[in-house]
Design a protein around this nucleic acid. Sequence first.
DNA 1: GCGAAAGGTAAAGCAAGCTTTACTTTTGTG
DNA 2: CACAAAAGTAAAGCTTGCTTTACCTTTCGC
Lengths: 65, 65
Amino acid sequence: MNNRIPELRRQQGWSQAHLAACLKVSRQTVNAIERGRYDPSLPLAFSIARLFGVAIEDVFQPDPE
Amino acid sequence: MNNRIPELRRQQGWSQAHLAACLKVSRQTVNAIERGRYDPSLPLAFSIARLFGVAIEDVFQPDPE
DNA sequence: GCGAAAGGTAAAGCAAGCTTTACTTTTGTG
DNA sequence: CACAAAAGTAAAGCTTGCTTTACCTTTCGC
């Protein structure tokens, strides 16, 4: 699952640690999701999209299968 | 996490079993998600939304916290 | 009211998401 | 270069998502 989190995060001038704090998850979780090591849960995906003020579909693009 | 799956599913005249087959998950998974026993993974949420031709936000509404 | 289809539920087990702790590597600014 | 901040990685452990098997209840057309 590809995502635009690094791009959206840097637009805000935020570190992974700051984003993690906003989302109330660990920094490692943010890192892992950004790097595509696993997908966020649906509630976390909602939190991320809401924080950036965009739709889930604007943050995450499922790989075509 | 509230969802409109039963409504969207019945609009298509589909059973839980049929929906499960389309999504390539078990019928119990569809049942559990419809009834809010747990949230789908993000990839499954994408599959569901895509199948019904709507946005994820149109299918799932995270409970306010 | 019968039977079949649909829906609901439960237990055990595997896979994925997330945590904490802790260490290494990269990046960037003086 | 030097130091600090940021990013990357790893292991162990807990929780959640999903599977299979199996059984019970509800709905509905005949």
